[in-house]
Design a protein around this nucleic acid. Structure first.
Length: 114
DNA sequence: TGTTTGACTGGGA
DNA sequence: CTCCCAGCCAAAC
């Protein structure tokens, strides 16, 4: 296991934002990165989500890329699980693409407006 | 210790 | 509109 003694804050911040995503809504890595004042570090958010497997309270299935594409579905227990969870929340997913993504999109910097 | 990769994004062609 | 390229930072090799 890596040493998280210094970077737990960033990861934890990502988890907090993801946890704030309302039911039936989705957000993007960039939105989370932007909320953390690090819009250029959107990739690191992806890594944070990779580590989110240890955090059961983090709905990683609500995090997609800016295109609304389920890019991270392959990292779940089952590739179908991410889409399944989204559909269970009333989100339609066709060909790994979130339908009506623009309306379902939840931007923490705009909606939360801390 | 140096290089490569990745659940991304924005801008340019 | 789609496709390609560079930047970014942490983890893995």
């Amino acid at each position: 296991m890596p040493d998280y003694s210094k970077h737990t804050d960033f990861f934890d911040s990502v988890y907090q934002v993801v946890r704030m995503v309302p039911y039936g809504r989705v957000t993007s890595y960039g939105a989370i990165a932007n909320y953390l004042s690090t819009p250029k570090s959107s990739r690191v958010v992806g890594w944070a989500m990779n580590a989110a497997h240890s955090i059961p309270d983090v709905p990683a299935h609500r995090v997609v890329n800016r295109n609304g594409l389920l890019t991270g579905k392959m990292h779940f227990s089952s590739p179908n699980e991410m889409q399944l969870l989204l559909e269970k929340e009333g989100i339609k997913v066709i060909n790994d693409q979130v339908q009506n993504f623009k309306s379902l999109f939840w931007d923490p910097t705009k909606e939360l407006k801390l």
